[in-house]
Each structure stands twice: as structure tokens, then as C-alpha cells.
Design a protein around this nucleic acid. Structure first.
Length: 325
DNA sequence: AACGTCCTCAACCGCTGTAGA
DNA sequence: ATCTACAGCGGTTGAGGACGT
């Protein structure tokens, strides 16, 4: 048996509060204190239901409420608590003085959740989800500088990805070796498509077939990369057909799905492990592992970058990624 | 300038838990 | 044990502002 909405009674106002109503509510609570919300509206001279008054007070008028943007520290706290607690907004709010559960919930849904999705992180489980990455953005990024096309990083994370992305990386890498001009040509065809079409292509077609006809007589073409072994150690095996020249660079894919190409430090063979894929580009303007640096930054890009760092260096123990390794 | 689309967030809805009659 | 009222919570909505064309 459902209960009738409290505001169905005649004469009770709904919708946005006016400054006059706010003033009445504030004055009443300052005199009598909060509580007994059922009788409060009548006593305060408000044509509102008690529930509406309570929500207005707790979510907006309370004097200890902190307004304004969430700091990076607050955002980090929200992400970490959410990974532990899920959508327990009131519990999370209890750990963030001055923030209401409603405010945190809104901020999560409008900012953090979208950012995690863009970075390929499941906002529910907080686990990396490479199938959430925007593949078309990877292609577009590669087009910006096709000469740097190098997808070893993607291949290094092959066990973390969906088969489509594996095939794409696999095919492009092979083609780069065999016929760089053809790669460039096909990527330009992709660029000519609108983004929706690119996404559809990425989702519905096999990239190897789309990009170019694969010659049947090529013996060393890696048809199904997913069957190849790839240990999780720092010494991941690298297929011989990659060629030594490809070892000079490593593709790092940030959580925006954008590949970044860097020279390995000290000319050492760069690890293609899970860590390398989670790594932020060395050319990133934001320093690593220094959250205080970001406090006064405000752009979404900076926060994206920061979150990438967060997940690289501060993968909490409770973030269960065992299924992906 | 006008229009359409997207985004944000205050407010509402509806459910659950609990206390009291 | 059952019913009722209330507080609290998470999910959802929609008005209004921002932005793009």
C-alpha cells in the first residue's frame, strides 16, 4: 500500500522556493530549531509540506553547508568512498563536512561518473573497462600524427581489452610494418566519417576487415592475438614480428582513450604490463602523484589527467582488478 | 537574434526503516 | 501483531542557464 504524496494536500505549494519562503523557514528554525517537520510549515506560515521544508533546510539553507566547486581532495574522497560504499550518498556526505548527500549525488552523476566512463573505468565497480573506451577517439588521435602510430601499449594490455580493440591494434601494428602508406590512407578514410559512424564501425565491424583486405598468404600475420600468451610480469613477451624499430617507442593510452607516444626511459625496454597502459603520458602537463598541485586547477582536462594519475599511483586495495589480470 | 541542444542541480517521488499507538 | 506517521535515503525529473549553430 503506497503512501499518498505528502504534497497532494490542497493548498500546498511545490516547486522552487522563493526568498520570502526561505526567510520564513530560516527565521523559524533559528528561533525554534529544526525538528517536527510536520507541524513546522503551519507554525512558520509556509504553504509547504514538512518534507519540502526539511529538504530545503538540509540541502540548501543549513548554515554549515559549503557552497561552490568541489576540490580535488573532495573529489578524490568521493571516488574512493564510492568504490567502497557504492551509492551510499548519506554515508559519503558524512565524511565530507559541509556537503550534502544530494549535492554529492548530483556531482557524481554529472561530473565524476562521466569522467570515469571517458577514462574507461566502470563507475559502478571502479574497475578498468577497456570496452568503455572511445575507440573512435583513439583512431582520431592516431590520425593527428600517423607517423607515430604505435599500438604496442594496447597490445601489451591485450588481456584487458575487448577483442575488437585487440584486433584493431593488432592489425594496425602489422600494417604499419608492412605498408605504412596503406595505414595512413585507411585512417584518413575513417577520419572522413562522422563520429557516429566511426563508433558504429568500431562496434559492429571487424577492424581488420574494415581497414584493409588482409592478404591470405601472409604467414606471420597475427590473426587472433588473444590466443597469444602474455604474462603479467614486467617481462611481457613481445612478438617477434613487431620488429626492433617498434621497440623504440611505446604507446601509452590514457583514460581518455588517447594514445601517447613516448621514448622509453634510459633506452630500456619499456614494460608493456598493465601499469604501462594505466600510465599517464610523460608529456602530460600535470605532475604525477601530487594532488595538491591540482587544487586550484579547474578544467575537466586537468581533472581527467589527475584521475589518470590517481588510478595509476593510488589503486586502492579494495579496487579489485584481479579479474582483469 | 533566434532557435535547438546539452548540462546542471534544486526539488520532488517513492521506497524503506523505525518508533509509537 | 498490526497499523500509521514520520524521517531518511536514493533515484529521477524538469526548469533554467550555457553553449553551439
Amino acid at each position: 500500500m503506497g503512501r499518498a504524496p505528502c504534497c497532494d494536500k490542497n493548498g500546498l505549494k511545490k516547486g522552487p522556493w522563493t526568498p520570502e519562503e526561505d526567510l520564513k523557514l530560516i527565521n523559524y528554525i533559528q528561533t525554534h530549531g529544526p525538528g517536527n517537520w510536520r507541524t513546522l510549515p503551519k507554525n512558520a506560515g509556509l504553504q509547504r509540506c514538512g518534507k519540502s521544508c526539511r529538504l530545503r533546510w538540509t540541502n540548501y539553507l543549513r548554515p554549515d553547508i559549503k557552497r561552490g566547486r568541489f576540490s580535488f581532495e573532495e573529489e578524490e574522497t568521493i571516488i574512493q568512498l564510492h568504490s567502497l560504499l557504492g551509492n551510499k550518498w548519506s554515508v559519503i556526505a558524512a565524511r565530507l563536512p559541509g556537503r550534502t548527500d544530494n549535492e554529492i549525488k548530483n556531482y557524481w552523476n554529472t561530473h565524476i561518473r562521466k569522467r570515469l566512463l571517458r577514462m574507461g573505468i566502470d563507475p559502478v565497480t571502479h574497475a578498468p573497462r577497456f570496452d568503455l573506451l572511445d575507440i573512435s577517439s583513439i583512431l582520431r588521435s592516431a590520425l593527428i600524427n600517423p607517423s607515430l602510430l604505435n599500438l604496442q601499449g594496447l597490445l601489451g594490455a591485450q588481456e584487458l581489452m575487448n577483442p575488437e580493440l585487440l584486433k584493431l591494434a593488432n592489425t594496425l601494428l602489422w600494417l604499419k610494418n608492412e605498408n605504412p602508406d596503406l595505414v595512413s590512407q585507411n585512417l584518413q578514410q575513417i577520419q572522413a566519417m562522422n563520429p557516429q559512424m566511426q563508433s558504429q564501425v568500431a562496434q559492429q565491424m571487424q577492424f581488420s576487415e574494415f581497414l584493409t583486405p588482409i592478404p591470405n598468404n601472409v604467414e606471420n600475420f597475427p590473426g587472433d592475438f588473444t590466443n597469444m600468451s602474455c604474462s603479467n610480469s614486467q617481462e611481457n613477451s613481445i612478438p617477434s614480428y613487431l620488429g626492433e624499430n617498434l621497440m623504440a617507442q611505446t604507446c601509452q593510452v590514457d583514460f581518455m582513450g588517447n594514445p601517447t607516444f613516448v621514448e622509453p626511459l634510459n633506452n630500456a625496454k619499456q614494460s608493456l604490463s598493465y601499469d604501462s597502459v594505466l600510465s599517464t603520458s610523460l608529456s602530460s602537463p600535470t605532475p604525477l602523484n601530487s594532488s595538491s598541485t591540482y587544487v586550484n586547477s579547474s578544467t575537466e582536462e586537468e581533472k581527467d589527467s589527475y584521475c589518470s594519475d590517481l588510478f595509476k599511483f593510488q589503486i586502492p586495495e579494495y579496487l579489485d582488478i584481479s579479474d582483469f589480470l
